[in-house]
């Protein structure tokens, strides 16, 4: 009998073949004898195995004493090994943790809302401040333009030095305010305007032969550089009036 036949015989013995294979395999008396021998051998093996490993009669009690302390008080509850994600999910399902998680989420939403709102408010405030500053500078430039026109026309009916001092103070304030904005053209214009105002504020033009006391440089606007400055003032005024944007 070859290896294949031995294997088939074992499968017949273990009842792991269909009826036809079994019937076909057992047609020969020789194979039947072999099957009987196999059965006898397997029974002998089983008997031998049963006699192995003798245990004490009170082995059950011994075993119980060894495991009794390891049994928890809630039988029937199998605790499967959970992954960290499953443990986290279970925590969320517990009412107190679930409520805390919910409160945390609500808190985060509210914080985000107020932070966003404050950021929006800040942006609005900044825009409003810029518009107010633009309007004030526009007014300042108008006053400066009038002042320069008056002094250049030799109008001595007003105290030009006091006006110049007031305009100079305003000019410096606006320059400082503009330092916080991206408005280089407006800043440059105020920078150019300041020496003129300073000159009148100090009354330093008094010794100038072209000037009378407190009224320096008659026809000031006829000076070419001064004409440029007056043009820039007018242009900037229009720009501010139209857009309210500081440039």
């Amino acid at each position: 009998m070859n290896h294949k036949d031995d294997e088939k015989l074992l499968m017949i013995y273990f009842n792991e073949t269909d009826d036809k294979t079994r019937d076909d395999g057992l047609q020969s008396p020789e194979v039947c004898d072999q099957l009987n021998q196999l059965e006898a051998d397997m029974n002998a093996i089983e008997r031998a195995a049963e006699q192995q490993h003798p245990l004490a009669e009170d082995y059950g009690q011994q075993l119980w004493e060894r495991i009794a302390d390891r049994l928890d008080d809630n039988p029937g509850i199998e605790l499967p090994r959970l992954s960290w994600w499953q443990k986290l999910q279970n925590y969320w399902l517990m009412p107190q943790y679930s409520l805390a998680s919910f409160a945390l989420v609500i808190g985060l939403v509210l914080v985000s809302f107020y932070v966003g709102k404050n950021q929006t408010d800040d942006a609005l405030n900044r825009q409003l401040q810029e518009q107010l500053l633009a309007q004030n500078i526009q007014l300042h430039l108008t006053q400066s333009e009038i002042f320069l026109t008056q002094v250049s026309n030799g109008n001595g009916a007003f105290n030009s030095q006091a006006t110049a001092q007031r305009l100079l103070s305003s000019n410096r304030l606006f320059k400082r305010a503009l330092a916080q904005h991206d408005s280089q053209f407006t800043s440059q214009l105020l920078q150019d305007l300041e020496p003129i105002l300073l000159e009148y504020a100090n009354g330093s033009a008094a010794g100038n032969p072209n000037q009378t006391h407190g009224q320096p440089r008659v026809n000031w606007v006829k000076d070419s550089s001064s004409s440029d400055l007056m043009f820039q003032i007018k242009t900037m005024k229009q720009q501010l009036a139209q857009t309210n944007d500081l440039i």
């Binding site: 192995q52 490993h53 245990l55 059950g60 009690q61 075993l63 119980w64 039988p75």
Partner: peptide
């Protein structure tokens, strides 16, 4: 009751 089960089946399980 579980103790009785252990006493009853301990040998079979060990074998």
């Amino acid at each position: 009751a579980f103790r009785l089960i252990v006493l009853h089946y301990a040998q079979a399980v060990n074998r």
